Amino acid sequence: MDLVDKLYDEHEQVKVQFVGFATKDTRYDFGIVYTNLFFGKPLVICMQTGRSALLDPRDVENHEYLQNIFRIDTASQTADLADFFSDLIPPAPLHPEYDY
Rank of each mutant, 00 (worst) to 15 (best):
D59E: 11
L3N: 09
T74S: 15
L81H: 02
Y100C: 04
T78K: 00
I69F: 01
D99V: 02
V16E: 15
K24P: 00
D56G: 12
L7G: 10
N68W: 02
D29L: 15
F70R: 01
K24F: 08
E97A: 13
S86M: 08
Y100D: 04
S86T: 10
F38N: 11
A53F: 00
D80C: 11
L55I: 11
T35W: 05
P90D: 08
V16K: 12
Y98T: 10
A79E: 13
H11A: 10
I72R: 03
F38P: 01
N68P: 00
F30R: 01
I69H: 00
L43R: 07
Q77E: 15
S76C: 07
K24G: 07
D29F: 11
Q48H: 13
Y8E: 13
V16T: 14
Q77P: 02
F21K: 13
M47K: 13
D83V: 03
F18I: 15
D25A: 12
P96G: 12
A82G: 08
L7I: 09
T78S: 03
P90Q: 07
T74G: 05
G31L: 12
L94E: 14
Q13N: 13
A92M: 01
H11G: 04
D9Q: 03
R51T: 02
H63W: 04
M47W: 02
N68D: 14
D25R: 02
R27L: 08
F30W: 04
D29N: 14
Q77I: 09
E64N: 03
F84S: 05
D56K: 02
D9K: 03
A22V: 11
D56V: 07
C46N: 15
R71N: 09
D83H: 05
D9E: 15
Y28R: 14
A79K: 07
D73P: 00
D56Q: 07
D2T: 03
E10Y: 06
Y34S: 14
Y8W: 08
A92W: 00
V60S: 09
A79F: 09
A53C: 07
A82R: 00
I89L: 06
G31A: 15
H63I: 04
S52D: 12
H11Y: 07
I69C: 01
T74C: 08
M47F: 04
H63Y: 09
K41R: 14
V60L: 11
Y65F: 12
I69D: 00
L7Q: 10
Y28G: 02
N36W: 08
I32H: 05
D80G: 04
P96R: 05
K24T: 14
R58H: 11
D83G: 13
G50A: 12
P93C: 09
D25H: 06
C46A: 11
V4C: 09
G40E: 06
S76D: 09
V16R: 14
A75E: 13
N68C: 03
V60W: 01
L7R: 06
H63D: 11
V33G: 01
V19C: 06
A82V: 07
P42E: 06
H95V: 13
V44S: 03
I89M: 01
V19W: 04
F30G: 02
